[in-house]
Design a protein around this nucleic acid. Structure first.
Lengths: 106, 106
DNA sequence: TTAATATGATACCAAATGGTATCCAAATGA
DNA sequence: TCATTTGGATACCATTTGGTATCATATTAA
């Protein structure tokens, strides 16, 4: 069984975590910075970050007393890969997404 | 807030449900047929089907005493839309993502 | 008609989940 | 130096989740 796929899907299942992913798409942030943007405690945010890290969607870099939370695009690969299985069902949407991803290079 | 997106992501978070989605991609199936393929009770499978239906990923058509469970491709749209959102942010990181996707698959 | 089949509905259970509060340690800055 | 800031680690709690068992209902087959 593929735990990476499972951990990634699980990480994306919570709305707060999807919001965090979107925020980190704009800029890297510390736990405190992220906590400022949510109505919950720092401990709760940290738990979400751990789940996101387990899912491979972010990396957490220690820098002094801070932890820089950074989006890890590669972590989305198992999700997109699973979805790719359904090309013939999910119409051309996924194909477009993949094209956008593959576009810049070739 | 977008409950469709949440319900769809939630539906995909469980490995059994993702398996069901893959099975229904091959052919429509009744609850009993699906139950034959899993090591769990019919009631458990039915619960998963309800979650998948709530997520808009399948439709359940009553046909006599049977329930035909059918894949609903449109239900994946909110998920793909959410993922597409990152086209605008990842530009220079997309090459890495492309590599990660193409590596294990093709 | 009657028995078997396919599913619905409900109650119940253990574990996971999302959150809090609290205390502790390590950097940092005045 | 020493208070402040940033985060880690626990313990705890209510709710949700994934599963079971059981009984009821409707359709189909014999």
């Amino acid at each position: 069984m593929n735990t990476q796929t499972q951990n990634a899907f699980r990480a994306l299942a919570d709305p707060t975590r999807r919001d965090i992913v979107q925020m980190l798409a704009s800029e890297d942030m510390t736990i405190a910075q992220l906590t400022d943007r949510f109505d919950m405690t720092r401990a709760a945010v940290k738990k979400h970050l751990t789940v996101l890290s387990d899912g491979g969607l972010i990396t957490i870099e220690a820098k002094g007393r801070e932890r820089i939370n950074r989006l890890e695009p590669k972590g989305m690969a198992p999700v997109l890969d699973w979805l790719s299985y359904f090309d013939r069902f999910w119409d051309e949407r996924l194909a477009d997404l993949k094209k956008a991803i593959e576009g810049p290079k070739k």
